[in-house]
């Protein structure tokens, strides 16, 4: 987690009787992201009666609480206290870990690869080269099931979502949409363009935590051949060091 010596200003919105939305409202997207994640971490560590937890994404944070124990007003004060603390002491720094993800691109593993290439007016090889070129920062854990949400590869154009979302996308699907990239930890319906699949097991419901990465960790993709899929199958995704 990047240290945030100066958290950005935030706006706090009511979101029903059991949640608040906190939005970092500066022009610096990187600082916004660092602020909401540092704040989420502070809220977890500090803990307050009746506060269930916080869900940080890009520039926003959903803080959920039990209205029988605490209230929107009290939780708002708790959030503001956290921000003042972060201004004084900064966020606790965590060394990011690196994950390397083998991917079989195209064919039955990536049914939308050619469509994406066509849309970007690039060759399939160029799409794969761009997708494997970059080290991605995991921005947040999203739906479904702790998906690693990442800023997308450096394609020329944003990738449109499927007009008809698939009823089921398999676990391990490697997908892109808009300017975002993701791996599906579990089978679920999805409207993102699937360009490949990793044979690694991302989500292990028998272990805690369920997924091995946290926001702030880094991830790279590397191409493997379809023949190698079985060799990796069943292995768990693990940090490189």
């Amino acid at each position: 987690m990047a240290a945030t010596p100066n958290p950005t200003p935030v706006e706090i919105f009511e979101s029903g009787d059991s949640a608040l939305r906190v939005v970092a409202s500066s022009d610096d997207t990187e600082a916004n992201w660092a602020t909401v994640h540092a704040l989420a971490q502070w809220l977890e560590t500090a803990g307050a009666d009746g506060v269930h937890g916080a869900v940080p994404t890009y520039d926003s944070l959903l803080v959920e609480f039990d209205p029988g124990v605490t209230s929107a007003r009290q939780v708002r004060a708790f959030v503001l206290l956290g921000l003042r603390q972060l201004e004084h002491v900064g966020a606790p720094a965590r060394t990011p870990r690196d994950f390397s993800v083998p991917v079989v691109y195209g064919g039955e593993y990536g049914p939308d690869l050619e469509r994406v290439a066509e849309h970007e007016q690039l060759s399939v090889e160029e799409i794969i080269a761009l997708h494997t070129a970059k080290s991605y920062v995991i921005r947040c854990l999203g739906a479904p099931a702790g998906s690693p949400m990442m800023d997308g590869p450096d394609f020329p154009l944003p990738v449109p979502r499927l007009k008809d979302p698939r009823l089921s996308v398999p676990a391990g699907a490697v997908a892109v949409a808009g300017r975002q990239a993701v791996i599906a930890p579990a089978a679920a319906p999805g409207g993102w363009c699937v360009i490949g699949q990793t044979p690694l097991t991302v989500l292990d419901a028998a272990s805690e935590p369920l997924v091995p990465y946290l926001p702030g960790d880094r991830l790279t993709f590397r191409q493997i051949q379809p023949e190698e899929f079985a060799e990796y199958a069943g292995r768990k995704l693990e940090a490189a060091r």
Binding site: G16, S18, R21, V55, T57, L62
Partner: peptide, 12 residues
């Protein structure tokens, strides 16, 4: 305008 993914409460 495109909305970035964010946490949504139960009941939204």
């Amino acid at each position: 305008a495109e909305v970035l993914s964010r946490g949504v409460p139960v009941g939204a």
